[in-house]
């Protein structure tokens, strides 16, 4: 560790006798990151809206292939919803422990969040495989197919990105413990993860539930 780095690390240590109320926003960089991720999420809102709009425009363009009512089933989607909603709560717990400066518990809850996300992803892969093998419903079968896989797949891609991010984050900090240098990183991840959950809420509503209704 170079001299400069040592100074930097010391400056970010959390004094156990004087824990900042918001470790994630105790430094200028933390404040920047906090606003930065929110601005980014505002941008993501439009990104997903474009996909939702495309999906809504094309959801009846089945070109003789399976329709929404024939494809979707409620049980799996309900399970996926529960998994992702719960992972949102567990990341809230993680941030709660961050504020109490309890690094181990924070890592634990973040780990649970990651596992739930992984389970969600497993379900999604199973769902896609099911559509492809049992219905021959692919990205190429119709405009509806393209729009469906683009929207749900884009969300799935965000989950994959989030999980990789979380793994790198947890691994890199496992030995360092919590300080005001990495607290913003955890907080940024948590906000991103909540946002993925919000998008899923609209996916299960607009795609699956409204697709079942017809």
């Amino acid at each position: 560790m170079s001299h400069q780095e040592a100074i930097g690390r010391n400056a970010h240590k959390i004094d156990p006798n004087n824990i900042p109320a918001e470790p994630a926003r105790a430094t200028a960089e933390g404040k920047h990151k906090h606003l930065g991720i929110w601005i980014f999420l505002g941008s993501e809102t439009v990104l997903f809206a474009s996909l939702f709009g495309t999906y809504i425009a094309l959801k009846n363009s089945t070109a003789g292939g399976p329709t929404t009512q024939e494809l979707y089933g409620l049980e799996l989607v309900f399970l996926m919803t529960l998994l992702l909603l719960t992972s949102s709560l567990t990341s809230v717990y993680a941030i709660y422990h961050m504020k109490n400066n309890n690094f181990k518990k924070m890592q634990l809850w973040m780990g649970i969040t990651g596992l739930l996300g992984l389970a969600f992803l497993g379900c999604e892969i199973y769902e896609f495989a099911h559509y492809i093998t049992d219905y021959g419903f692919t990205f190429r079968s119709s405009a509806f197919g393209s729009a469906f896989y683009a929207l749900v797949g884009f969300h799935g891609g965000h989950v994959i990105f989030g999980l990789s991010w979380l793994i790198v984050l947890m691994a890199r900090n496992a030995k360092r413990g919590l300080d005001t240098y990495n607290a913003p990183k955890y907080n940024t991840f948590a906000l991103y993860w909540h946002f993925i959950d919000v998008v899923w809420v609209f996916i299960f509503t607009v795609v699956y539930l409204m697709g079942m209704v017809g």
């Binding site: 094309l58 363009s61 079968s141 729009a147």
Partner: peptide
């Protein structure tokens, strides 16, 4: 098939 009229 987003812009492919044949597939909707």
């Amino acid at each position: 098939a987003f812009f492919d009229i044949a597939l909707g």
